[in-house]
């Protein structure tokens, strides 16, 4: 009885080991199963989903106009103090003072890509870009100015 159990133990053990070896053997001989992506080489065909959150950018149209009113909703929504908005006062043609965006400072090094600023923006002036290669040699390069030089607010955006 003992011998029978002993032998069946040994056989069961060997069978279970061979099962595992069959599986790894299968993968060894089937190269089509390989899932490696050759990262820097496949940049062309690599397509990130549209919603992927890489960094915050401000949308500018071809006339170098953006939709940011400088309302600081994003600054308030941000949990990390990533965004700092500096406003200025523009003169409207009627001669009235109007609050407008001067500089949109974005600290990429503090950003956690939580998307709360995008949700908060009432005019959809900012959005998340798909760029994810953020490494730079100097940390100060990560502090970005999002509104392009000379840009101004689009007509009709309040």
């Amino acid at each position: 009885m003992f011998l029978k159990k002993y032998i069946s133990d040994v056989f069961g053990a060997v069978r279970s080991l061979l099962k595992g070896m069959r599986l790894t053997g299968y993968y060894f001989t089937h190269r089509k199963e390989i899932i490696t992506q050759q990262y820097p080489d496949n940049k062309e065909e690599m397509k990130l989903p549209e919603r992927f959150r890489g960094e915050v950018v401000m949308l500018h149209d071809e006339k170098n106009e953006h939709a940011c009113t400088g309302c600081t909703a994003c600054e308030l929504a941000c949990p990390n103090g990533t965004i700092k908005i500096i406003t200025k006062f523009d003169m409207t043609p009627e001669g009235k003072k109007k609050k407008a965006l001067d500089t949109f400072i974005y600290h990429l090094e503090l950003c956690t890509m939580c998307n709360l600023c995008i949700e908060a923006c009432p005019t959809d002036a900012i959005k998340m870009a798909q760029n994810f290669e953020h490494s730079v040699y100097d940390r100060s390069e990560l502090t970005k100015k999002l509104n392009k030089p000379g840009s101004k607010i689009r007509e009709g955006v309040e």
Binding site: P49, F52, R53, T112, M113, N115, E119, M128
Partner: peptide, 19 residues
């Protein structure tokens, strides 16, 4: 990634629903 916009720390949840 496709639905939430991130792979690990999704932050897809907002009070009252999803983002």
């Amino acid at each position: 990634e496709e639905t939430c916009g991130a792979r690990l720390t999704m932050n897809y949840m907002v009070p009252g629903g999803v983002m």
